[in-house]
């Protein structure tokens, strides 16, 4: 999942100060890069909705925050996204998709198949990427849309880009 390095590069180039996350296997490489970076405050959350409010607070203080989560986490965010929409806070998230491509776990299907609509209904602009060579450009554009365009901006990272999980079966 070397494409994580491309997102990391986009995060660094944009001067992002806080990266909030609930771990997902697809984000492992990127999360570790952020934890190892002394100029990034890596904030481990107990639930994804914290990251929405954290992003708003960071922006109140003049800092950019980016969120990393998986598609099921989007379901935990819906009401908190009202803070972003009502106050027109910039918001930026990278969501690794489940329930899309050779999904082993049926429990990932309900959110995996509705993530995009749920985010759009909650006022987010959603882009998707399935080709690893496109991640860098799309990551930079997603971050630009959030903090320069001042939008709620989310990039969905296709499950096709992460190794198929089989739980040893």
């Amino acid at each position: 999942m070397e494409w994580g390095d491309d997102i990391y590069k986009a995060i660094k180039e944009a001067g992002v100060g806080q990266v909030a996350y609930v771990p997902d296997a697809g984000h492992k490489r990127l999360i570790n890069a952020c934890i190892d970076d002394n100029d990034i405050k890596a904030v481990s959350l107990t639930t994804e909705e914290e990251g929405i409010a954290l992003s708003a607070g960071a922006w109140l203080g003049g800092e950019k925050c980016v969120m990393l989560m998986q598609s099921s986490g989007v379901g935990n965010c819906i009401n908190m996204l009202s803070l972003i929409e009502t106050c027109r806070f910039p918001f930026c998230a990278f969501v690794t998709m489940r329930g899309q491509w050779h999904e082993f776990n049926p429990w990932q299907m309900p959110m995996g198949t509705t993530t995009k609509q749920a985010l759009q209904t909650a006022g987010c602009l959603v882009d998707e990427v399935e080709d690893p060579s496109d991640v860098g450009a799309k990551a930079a554009a997603t971050i630009h849309k959030a903090f320069v365009g001042q939008q709620s901006s989310v990039l969905l990272l296709s499950q096709r880009m992460v190794p198929i999980k089989t739980f040893g079966k």
């Binding site: 806080q18 904030v43 409010a53 607070g57 960071a58 800092e63």
Partner: peptide
């Protein structure tokens, strides 16, 4: 439920 994380983001910034 968002007051504390909002304050945290601000405090870190």
């Amino acid at each position: 439920g968002g007051a504390v994380p909002t304050g945290l983001g601000l405090a870190l910034a």
